[in-house]
Computed example of a mutant assay.
Amino acid sequence: MPRDGSATRIRILDAAERLVIDSGYAATSIDQVIAAAGSSKGSFFHHFSSKADLAEQLVRRYAEADVGVLQEGLDVVAGIDDPRARLLAFMAHFEDHADEVMGSQSSCLYVAVLTERQLVGSDTAVPILGAVRAWRQAVADLLRGALGDSDHDVDALADHLFVTFEGAFILCRATGDPGHMRRQLSAVRVLYEALTSQSRSE
């Protein structure tokens, strides 16, 4: 059977993701990506028209995977009827998988991309905004169900979870302690638990 080259494309994207996260986009050259992927210049330009095209496809893939992780969490708690229990189970799911997250990556591609002047404001950042909005809507919906009639800014509370993930990546990397991811997610769960408990008692 003829090979469609998808394995080569994935290998190049995997190598580029590691390099961009570790060194930044500007400091990562096409030659470095090719060498890290064990590929060739011809293979690279068969799949990507330029370094900018590589960045766009890389971010799109990462954002789609990120939204996929969100959906996995939603699927896990979909059968829970009580809104508050569903929200807290959703948070517990990510706490339980925090070590896996940190074991598979030391930082987040979003941070690497959004600190690069060449990429901020370009179409490369568009998928990141889509992922931010997907997380906000899903978590805000969980919070609305758990909080009921409340004056709390549920969108801001939902964004706080996304911010926690990104901030925890930086904290873990700065300190060399991957356990910060679990601890920070636990802190958000406790916050959500207290807010929803207070709303029920009012």
Rank of each mutant, 00 (worst) to 15 (best):
H46T: 13
Y192C: 14
A65F: 07
F162A: 09
A85Q: 14
Q32K: 12
F169E: 00
T115M: 09
A158Q: 05
I10S: 13
F44C: 03
Q137M: 11
G130S: 06
V188R: 08
S104Q: 13
A27V: 02
V33I: 15
V188K: 01
V33Q: 02
D159G: 01
S49N: 10
V139D: 02
E202R: 15
V101S: 12
K51G: 05
S39I: 07
M102T: 11
Y62S: 07
V120E: 05
I21V: 15
R11M: 08
G179H: 04
D155I: 04
G24T: 05
A194P: 00
Q198W: 04
A112H: 02
S29Y: 11
R61D: 14
A36C: 09
S201T: 11
R117V: 13
I12A: 03
S23C: 11
L70V: 10
V126M: 12
A78Q: 10
H47Q: 10
R61G: 09
L195V: 09
D141H: 10
I34A: 06
A63K: 01
A36F: 08
I12R: 01
H97S: 12
E202C: 10
A140R: 13
A174D: 08
G5M: 09
E72Y: 10
A138H: 04
A174T: 12
T8H: 06
A89R: 14
G167F: 06
A140E: 12
G145W: 06
K51Y: 07
F90E: 01
D22V: 05
D96G: 15
M102D: 00
W135C: 00
E64W: 06
S40E: 04
V76Q: 15
L129H: 12
G167Q: 03
R133Q: 13
R200A: 15
S39Y: 08
D159A: 11
